[in-house]
């Protein structure tokens, strides 16, 4: 059973998740199907900045986050930025979109100059997230759990972060049991995606270097 406090917690997190999105004037540009390689590179770079700003605005609303040590807050955001961006991108990519939009987006990514060896694991990850058919509450909580990973570099008070993460994991676990009673492995599968995210994040640094050189 989810307690009243836990329900209130989920409500705050989901509202923040819905409120903080990439600005529409930026996403509209993504859907233009006429663009040069340079325009594409500039837009995807602009989006990366927006993604980080959106991540920070969302994270400030996570109950307890702003009570953490200030430098730990920065360490958590720095450490989780790439994973959180991939997770959010995967969720957006799998959302129902008007006809043709998914194809334009996929085409844009494939023609961005990013090497195929990185594109493949990225799209594989997007597909594996899509297969989960997560509801909004699960997406928001999984993102929160990613951000509140205690073993990021330079985090000093790991126990404080761990306590906060445990609170979120407990709520998510209960939600999975209640929402997916016929699939007792659902929670474990969600957490399995976090391991995939870590792998993808390790590819990311190499992906950037090769892309910049291209």
């Amino acid at each position: 059973e989810i307690t009243k406090d836990q329900q209130a917690l989920v409500k705050i997190i989901v509202e923040a998740y819905n409120r903080h999105q990439i600005p529409q004037d930026v996403t509209k540009k993504l859907l233009q199907d006429q663009y040069s390689a340079e325009e594409n590179f500039l837009l995807l770079t602009e989006m990366a900045t927006n993604q980080v700003q959106v991540l920070v605005e969302f994270t400030k609303n996570i109950p307890g986050f702003l009570s953490l040590d200030r430098e730990d807050q920065i360490a958590l955001l720095k450490g989780s930025a790439v994973e959180a961006m991939f997770l959010r991108s995967a969720q957006v990519f799998n959302r129902k979109m008007p006809s043709g939009h998914t194809e334009v987006l996929e085409d844009r990514i494939r023609k961005s100059g990013i090497s195929e060896e990185f594109i493949t694991p990225m799209f594989n990850f997007y597909k594996s997230i899509g297969e989960l058919h997560m509801v909004r509450e699960e997406q928001a909580l999984l993102t929160t759990i990613t951000i509140l990973t205690p073993d990021r570099p330079y985090v000093k008070d790991q126990q404080a972060v761990e306590r906060l993460q445990e609170t979120m994991l407990d709520v998510l676990r209960k939600m999975c049991v209640l929402q997916h009673p016929q699939d007792p492995q659902y929670f474990a599968r969600l957490l399995g995606r976090l391991t995939e995210l870590r792998t993808l994040s390790h590819y990311h640094a190499e992906m950037l270097t090769s892309w910049r050189m291209n």
Partner: peptide, 21 residues
């Protein structure tokens, strides 16, 4: 290192935004 510094700058500015308000 340069791109990591850029990321940290963006994060610090965005975090500070609330305090300034």
């Amino acid at each position: 290192p340069a791109s990591n510094l850029g990321l940290e700058d963006i994060i610090r500015k965005a975090l500070m935004g609330n305090l300034e308000e």
